[in-house]
Design a protein around this nucleic acid. Sequence first.
DNA 1: GCTATAGATAAGCAGATACTTATCTATCAG
DNA 2: CTGATAGATAAGTATCTGCTTATCTATAGC
Lengths: 104, 104
Amino acid sequence: MNETDIFRALADPNRRAVLERLLDGEKNATELREGLRISQPAVSQHVAVLRGAGLIAEKKEGRHVRYSLAPEGLAPVLDWLTRYRAYWPERVERLKALLKEMDQ
Amino acid sequence: MNETDIFRALADPNRRAVLERLLDGEKNATELREGLRISQPAVSQHVAVLRGAGLIAEKKEGRHVRYSLAPEGLAPVLDWLTRYRAYWPERVERLKALLKEMDQ
DNA sequence: GCTATAGATAAGCAGATACTTATCTATCAG
DNA sequence: CTGATAGATAAGTATCTGCTTATCTATAGC
């Protein structure tokens, strides 16, 4: 839930890959594992780190667990990044375009 | 320069503190150290990690080195984060306000 | 009940991290 | 040249990470 936990969680490529996979909807652990060349326990451990950082939520359904992105989880990163906005040169233009697009 | 290097660099509180300090202008290593309860070599090592991640630039001036934030350094983080925009609920409102303010 | 499957937990280990003290290099002041 | 200072580098070490295999728990189907 704090910046350190979140940045540490995001520092691992396999964990970012897990988040990536959740972009297109809920997944269970086995689905999250696809494409990652690590064992089932390793996935479980990564998921625990992501959950601890507040980045994913889980919902038990029988013997399956459905994992999903936690909507507010990345907010501290955005907040942190915003403090450095003076150092986002032309990226700001891209963001403006993005927000305009989102308005439609 | 890649996401992993950047997130790893940001995962350490002392390194984030160094960046924080650079928000109000160039500093030399001794100034960066103020407030951090770590040795001079530790600061030097953190600075090396931040430089390696492309987050700070340095300019030698005699026996001093002036460190500053590297403007483009955080762009990959912003880009990464943008992919999760659907999960930024009301934060978007804050950003819109911010960008409007920057237009003035 | 028995067996299979989803996922978590335990234990162990190799490599990475963050720190320390000691030392080195380079510039500056006299 | 000499001594002091800014900063980097070297070497050593305790702790943390990310992984593995083995095992455990819990649900589901028969």
